[in-house]
Simulated scan of single mutants.
Amino acid sequence: MDMLQNNQLEIRHISPEVRQLIKMYADVNSCTQSEMLERIILEWNAQQSESERPPGDEDE
Rank of each mutant, 00 (worst) to 15 (best):
M1T: 06
D2C: 08
D2E: 11
M3T: 15
M3W: 14
M3N: 14
M3F: 15
L4N: 00
L4E: 01
Q5I: 15
N6S: 13
N7F: 10
L9E: 01
E10T: 15
E10H: 14
E10M: 14
E10R: 15
E10K: 15
I11H: 06
R12S: 13
H13I: 03
I14T: 01
I14P: 01
I14R: 05
P16R: 04
P16K: 04
E17V: 10
R19G: 00
R19S: 00
Q20V: 04
I22M: 04
I22T: 01
K23A: 07
M24L: 11
M24W: 13
Y25H: 07
D27A: 14
V28L: 11
N29F: 14
N29A: 14
S30M: 08
S30W: 11
C31M: 08
C31E: 02
Q33M: 07
Q33N: 02
S34Q: 11
E35L: 03
E35I: 00
M36I: 05
M36S: 01
M36D: 08
M36V: 05
E38L: 03
E38N: 07
E38Q: 10
E38I: 05
I40D: 01
I40S: 08
I41V: 10
L42S: 10
L42F: 04
E43H: 14
W44H: 08
N45T: 08
A46M: 06
A46W: 03
Q47I: 08
Q48A: 07
S49A: 15
E50I: 02
E52A: 15
R53G: 04
R53I: 10
P54N: 09
P54G: 12
P55S: 12
G56K: 09
D57H: 14
E58R: 12
E60C: 05
